[in-house]
Design a protein around this nucleic acid. Structure first.
Length: 578
DNA sequence: TGTGCCTGCCC
DNA sequence: ATTCTGC
DNA sequence: GCAGAATGGGCAGGCACA
């Protein structure tokens, strides 16, 4: 019987990982650690690495993030909350804050199991005063830690270990530890893709060896990690990756659902991240029950909200009102949905993961005739770019997001974002995307690798009638590291002690700016916002905002008065509204 | 009982 | 979701 | 090109608190 591994030992590995950039070195460090821990400790380490205490499909959450963790830090060492906040603002990492304010002490009394058990208790706390309980438990745990231990406990809870190690690297390290080479990671990855439980894979691998995981098969009731698509800027580019015949399929703007139907007719629905969402869609469950009639299957598709009057596809925002636990029946009537099935991974006792897509599609067409609430996703088969363009235009016209192009010969590559599936949306192509020239009015401090600069900027449109600026979105994507590093200097001269009086927004920025700088921004589409204020008066139900915003470039040639106007955005909204 | 903050999870 | 970056 | 780590809008649910 091995002695329980100390949390301190894991922390020592973390320290080393944090200091190394080389992937190979990282794998060696992990491998070294894995080779002297028990199967159960390997399981727990896997969960801790992801900032979780269970696989996703068990739905057990810590329910404690930045704000409550800050309160825990304050409580653990009697530091004023204000000071914790200030330090966080400066360093951008609560783990580092914890390490700084924790008093020097040896540590080493905690084992991995004990730390895990405490976090599990936090996760299980619920009901009145449970927030206080969670904070208390974490604070007590932290107070038993050395500064280094406290740093990683904090980061684990926040799910931001920032070590350059996530699931794949973990599996490489495990492979190396157990087989002496990283090459067997493929076996582990395959097992992970089918079991969707990194901890379970780690446990079994350490216990029975990597080879024992060779033939892991899908199980009804355990979600399979979903295959994802790469993206291209243009349909021409598809030819580079998929030269032959491809399936061109509507890309629906809804929620991905993997449905498991057992022989006994038990049905479970899983979201893309393996949350059980069966209770949200009794209508889909009923439709699947009727369609399958005792056959077992795992199928995949997209649920989309449908306009009850005319049957047209509705936008994502409307579907989101169905992500609920109360009043489900009412919303089944109010927001009807349709399940657009596009794949089948298991049927009648057989895994179809290795069956070519063309055959999986045949199974679908043979066994899933359209019915109330169920339809097969619309697609064509072609190798001709012109035809793809036409179908893409049709998909957009019908209310789709774009198209997904799929290699007809490809197997289902669970969990990977490979080139066998390629997505193409309108906003990926510069000429088709809407762009906006917006005024920078606020900044939000960055965290982690963006510590010391801004993580995002609050930008606004101009209204010449009121002479005011109306917030439209925050942008944090699209900046290079170099650009990010320049931001504080570039913006410093416009710094204000408080929000500029002519800026309208309900967002709280860390730093406010005088409207001066203009930047070009693109995004996918307009949404109705509870916090942004563009065209808020005209719309009544909220302001307009931008989904998936990203920075393109500065427009130093433009003054803030020459920025995109509120009126222009509102017109865009009314013109494309469906 | 109503409201607002916080969190987790969809995209 | 999108984007950037080091390996 | 992979894997990881930054970042967005916005919804419902749970809890704290007035």
């Amino acid at each position: 019987m091995k002695p329980a591994t100390k949390f301190k030992e894991l922390v020592a590995v973390f320290e080393q990982l944090e200091a190394t950039a080389s992937n190979l070195k990282i794998m060696d460090l992990l491998a070294d650690f894995f080779s002297h821990i028990t199967p159960e400790e390997a399981r727990l380490t896997a969960y801790l690495l992801r900032g979780k205490v269970a696989p996703d499909y068990e739905g057990l959450e810590l329910g404690l993030a930045k704000k409550l963790v800050m309160r825990s830090l304050a409580q653990a060492w009697g530091t004023p909350l204000k000071e914790v906040e200030n330090r966080f603002q400066k360093t951008g990492d609560l783990g580092d804050v914890a390490a700084r304010i924790a008093p020097q002490r040896e540590g080493g009394e905690l084992s991995i199991q004990e730390v895990f058990a405490e976090l599990q208790t936090i996760a299980r706390a619920s009901g009145a005063r449970s927030q206080e309980v969670k904070i208390q438990i974490l604070a007590a745990l932290l107070s038993r830690c050395s500064p280094q231990e406290a740093k990683y406990v904090t980061r684990i809870v926040l799910g931001t270990l920032r070590l350059g190690v996530a699931e794949m690297t973990f599996l490489y390290g495990l492979s190396k530890a157990l087989t002496g080479t990283k090459e067997k990671k493929a076996i582990l990855e395959n097992a992970f893709n089918v079991l969707s439980d990194l901890g379970e894979v780690a446990y079994q691998a350490v216990k029975k060896g990597v080879e024992a995981l060779q033939e892991v098969q899908p199980v009804i009731g355990i979600p399979i990690r979903m295959m994802l698509a790469q993206r291209v800027k243009d349909l021409e580019e598809v030819k580079k990756h998929l030269p032959g015949q491809v399936i061109v399929e509507y890309k629906y703007d809804g929620e991905r659902i993997q449905a498991h139907i057992s022989k006994q007719g038990e049905i479970t629905l899983y979201s893309r991240r393996h949350e059980k969402i069966t209770h949200q869609f009794p209508d889909i469950v009923a439709a699947l029950g009727r369609a399958l009639q005792g056959k077992e299957a795992i199928i995949e598709g997209e649920v989309v909200a449908i306009d009850p009057q005319i049957g047209k596809l509705q936008n994502f925002q409307i579907l989101m009102t169905r992500r609920r636990k109360h009043g489900v029946e009412e919303y089944v009537r109010k927001v009807p949905v349709k399940y657009f099935i596009f794949d089948i991974l298991y049927f009648e006792g057989k895994s179809l993961l290795k069956t070519p897509l063309s055959q999986r599609k045949e199974v679908l067409t043979r066994h899933f005739p359209d019915s109330d609430g169920l339809t097969l996703a619309k697609y064509i088969m072609t190798g001709d770019v012109e035809e793809m363009e036409g179908f893409f235009a049709e998909a957009i016209e019908q209310g789709g997001e774009g198209v997904v192009l799929k290699d007809v010969t490809s197997i289902y590559e669970a969990g990977t974002r490979g080139w066998k599936w390629i997505k193409f949306k309108k906003d990926y192509r510069r000429e088709l995307a809407d762009t906006f020239d917006l005024v920078v009015v606020g900044g939000i401090y960055g965290t982690g690798r963006r510590a010391g600069t801004y993580g995002s900027l609050l930008v606004a449109a101009f209204n010449p009638e009121t002479n005011k600026y109306y917030s439209f979105t925050k942008v944090g994507a699209g900046f290079t590291d170099q650009e990010l590093a320049r931001l504080p200097d570039r913006l410093a001269k416009y710094n204000l002690p408080e929000k500029y009086r002519l800026v309208e927004t309900q967002i709280e920025a860390d730093v406010w700016f005088e409207p001066a700088l203009v930047m070009e921004i693109t995004g996918a589409e307009l949404t109705i916002s509870p916090v942004h204020t563009v065209a808020k008066e005209e719309l009544k139900k909220g302001g307009l905002a931008l989904r998936f915003p990203r920075f393109l470039r500065w427009r130093d040639d433009k003054s803030p008065e020459q920025a995109t106007t509120v009126q222009e955005i509102y017109e865009l909204y009314t013109s494309i509204r469906r």
